[in-house]
Simulated assay, not measured.
Amino acid sequence: MKKARLLIIVAAICWGTIPVFYHIMSAAGLNSMQTITMRFSFAALGYVLYLLIRDRSLLRIKRPRHLLYFVGTGLCSLAFFNFCYITCIRHAGVAVAALLLYTAPAFVLLMSAALFREKLTGRGLLSLVMTVLGCAFVAGAFSGKGLTMTPAALLWGLGSGFGYALYSIFGKYALRHYGAETITAYTAVFAALATFPLSEPARLIRLAANPSVLLSALGCAVVGTVFAYLLYTAGLSKVPAGQASILSTVEPVVATILGVLLLKETMTIHKLCGIALVLGAIVVLNLQKSSEAS
């Protein structure tokens, strides 16, 4: 269990590097949907080729209806939540979008209780509250700068959180029949297929000739997608979906720290409070597991 939780935390650290890669690709002229498409396309192509060389049996689908699991993880989760997230940013800015995205643990806890009979413990609920507050601090909700929240922004933001949560739910079902490698490969394939038509393909192909774009897309695909989702899915096989979702909120903490170190963003007392709350929520979860073990 400890190893599985560590895998999820490392996966979240990998996700936290994504804004750095996105920053480089955006500077080269790609819009948000194009950066996402590049990420998923490189991940899908690279991982499928890798499995074809290493063990093509891992790409075998046992039953046609099992494709619905990967439609769920790739299209309904990754593609859907990224589209909602980008739209929410256009309506209300990054801070509000980031705050609403991390309503995902609440959705996961509720759906896991209903679908998988996972228990809602006092410590689990406390860690959830700490996580939501921590993400709110990181997003700047309490900075006094007057974050706007229109009905459209709220709906798109909650949609991103719900879509983000669906990976943990569909992933749990898929893990009953497939390993983490198969799930990660097909998730990337369906996410790429869903986002490519929305990315202005002709313009994207021209911009992709830029070496900095290619290298950034490759890094984002390997570190922020294949490696991250492989680790998260492996950890998800041993950790309840609700706890996995809370552990993954290390991502905005890492993104904030890298933003300060590499992108020269400012560190504020609100961000420090948010980091402390998110890390504290992870400690609470670990205490919960320790008490159960004893």
Rank of each mutant, 00 (worst) to 15 (best):
K145T: 08
E292A: 15
A234R: 14
L147W: 01
L120Q: 14
G159R: 10
E200L: 02
I257S: 12
L204F: 06
P105M: 08
A234C: 04
G16M: 10
L236H: 08
Y173S: 12
L59F: 04
L158T: 10
V253F: 02
A4Y: 02
L198N: 03
I13C: 13
L128N: 08
A27S: 11
A209R: 13
I269D: 09
G16I: 06
R203G: 10
S248N: 09
A97G: 10
K238P: 03
I13A: 15
V226A: 06
G280M: 03
L30G: 03
P211C: 02
Y173T: 02
A139H: 02
I257C: 14
S143L: 01
I13S: 12
F70C: 06
V250G: 07
I9E: 12
I8Y: 03
L67G: 11
S168L: 09
P64L: 02
L30F: 03
V189F: 07
R63A: 13
Y178F: 13
T187I: 00
S245Y: 03
F107Q: 13
F196Q: 00
I257D: 13
A281T: 07
S248Y: 00
V278H: 01
M267Y: 11
S26C: 00
T266Y: 06
A191D: 11
L125K: 07
V71S: 04
F162V: 12
L285P: 07
K264I: 00
V94E: 07
A228E: 09
A12D: 11
M25R: 04
V223Y: 02
G280N: 07
G124R: 14
A244F: 03
F190T: 01
A92G: 12
L101M: 15
H66A: 08
L207H: 06
L287C: 13
S41N: 12
I169Y: 09
W156T: 13
L7I: 00
S291Q: 15
K172R: 15
R56M: 00
L128S: 10
R65S: 13
V96Y: 05
L215V: 08
H66D: 14
A217I: 05
P19T: 07
I169N: 12
V71W: 08
R54E: 07
